[in-house]
């Protein structure tokens, strides 16, 4: 089992967080959040991976033949649905912020301080 997917997941999480922290544009920020989320896809799929196994579609493979773990794939799918919902909601809010405040820059939003 290679460590590469785990390194990729950690990298995506870190780089996404860096993007959010330094972001100057709300749309960019939402996309960075999706980058963080994609690290969880990689992590989940890496955990279910088995070398040499086939996809978990059990109609065409002989019984007992190795298949990768379908549970984590189901979890990933749920995760994707969650991601779509959150991104859609956040993008809608970002557009609304631009309508109201005339800016996408989080540095210029200052109604809530102290």
């Amino acid at each position: 089992m290679s460590f590469l997917p785990f390194a990729v997941a950690a990298w995506l999480f870190a780089v996404g967080l860096y993007g959010i922290v330094t972001s100057r544009h709300l749309i960019h920020l939402v996309v960075c959040l999706s980058v963080v989320q994609s690290s969880t896809y990689v992590l989940l799929l890496a955990i279910g991976y088995r070398t040499g196994a086939s996809a978990p579609i059990f109609v065409e493979i002989p019984p007992g033949a190795p298949a990768v773990d379908p549970v984590v794939q189901a979890l990933t799918l749920t995760d994707v649905v969650v991601a779509a919902t959150v991104s859609a909601l956040l993008l809608a809010m970002a557009v609304q912020v631009h309508k109201k405040a005339g800016t996408f820059d989080p540095d210029e939003l200052d109604t809530l301080q102290g």
Binding site: F13, L17, I20, L26, L29, L33, V36, Q37, S39, T40, V82, V86, L89, L90, M93, A94, Q96, V97, K100, A101, L109, T111, L112
Partner: peptide
Amino acid sequence: EEEGSLQGSLNFAVTNSIGAF
């Protein structure tokens, strides 16, 4: 319609989503 409300909700959504990840 309120800037503050949107900003509060954005901060809420981004931080809590990272918590969920």
